[in-house]
């Protein structure tokens, strides 16, 4: 589905991604683990070209993702959910969800609203449809952000620590919604520190350290006994 080949990313002199190679499988859920600063966000952001790779290429269904030529089309296929929600603060909940449908997909207003209403119901937040983001809790904001990403009917969704900015009591409402997205044909790529959640929903695990993928494989293998010492230490620390 998404193939990352020889990907390198520098910020100035800082080598943040070091020769990353990986294939994300269609319809599967891949959870990316690793300590803070290991390059997880940067990897995710290279996939939809929020960061331009310094070197290497990324393929979407065998088509090279190009930051100029095809990125707008590919971004419609790849949704993203951010740690800090990033809802449009000048738009109501329903406007947040319909906005890209209208300006990117040129969907008529009424159809966009109907699409949005279905999705808001799915993430359990229909009653707040006319509220502005400033009036929502973190958990509610993140559920709206998920609905906004789903509205474009993407084939892939990138989640960058979607629950890290939430109060503990709101984490589960967001994870519950995310669970409903697995095994639906959607390809999920999730950066998360929620180990219980990773154990439950992941098909594959990637473990990153210092800009490199140092361990990858089916979740069963990873959680039973990581091959590398660093991944073992990481699991020990977190569990």
């Amino acid at each position: 589905m998404i193939k990352v080949k020889q990907l390198n990313k520098y910020f100035g002199d800082l080598h943040v991604l070091k020769n990353i190679n990986f294939s994300f499988q269609e319809g599967k859920t891949t959870v990316i683990l690793g300590s803070s600063g290991s390059g997880k966000s940067t990897l995710l952001r290279c996939i939809n070209m929020l960061e331009t790779p310094t070197d290497g290429s990324i393929y979407y269904r065998n088509e090279i993702i190009d930051p100029v030529k095809n990125i707008k089309l590919i971004r419609q296929k790849i949704g993203m959910v951010f740690q800090s929600f990033n809802l449009f603060s000048n738009m109501t909940v329903i406007e947040n969800v319909t906005y890209a449908l209208k300006v990117v997909k040129k969907m008529p207003n009424e159809e966009a609203i109907n699409t949005a209403l279905v999705l808001l119901k799915r993430v359990g937040i229909s009653d707040k449809k006319d509220a502005y983001p400033s009036k929502l809790s973190g958990g509610q904001k993140q559920r709206v952000a998920i609905a906004r990403a789903l509205a474009m009917n993407p084939e892939v969704i990138l989640f960058d620590e979607p629950t890290s900015a939430l109060d503990p009591e709101m984490v589960s409402e967001v994870l519950e919604v995310m669970k409903t997205l697995t095994h639906t044909g959607l390809t999920n790529i999730i950066v998360s520190h929620e180990m219980g959640f990773a154990k439950e929903v992941a098909d594959y695990i990637i473990y990153m350290d210092d800009g490199m993928i140092i361990e990858e494989g089916p979740k069963e293998d990873f959680f039973k006994k990581p091959k590398t010492k660093r991944a073992q230490d990481f699991l020990q620390k977190i569990l």
Partner: peptide
Amino acid sequence: VDKGEIEAARALGVS
């Protein structure tokens, strides 16, 4: 203007 909001729009393919 929050950079995150701008990124969210870019990530949706907004021009």
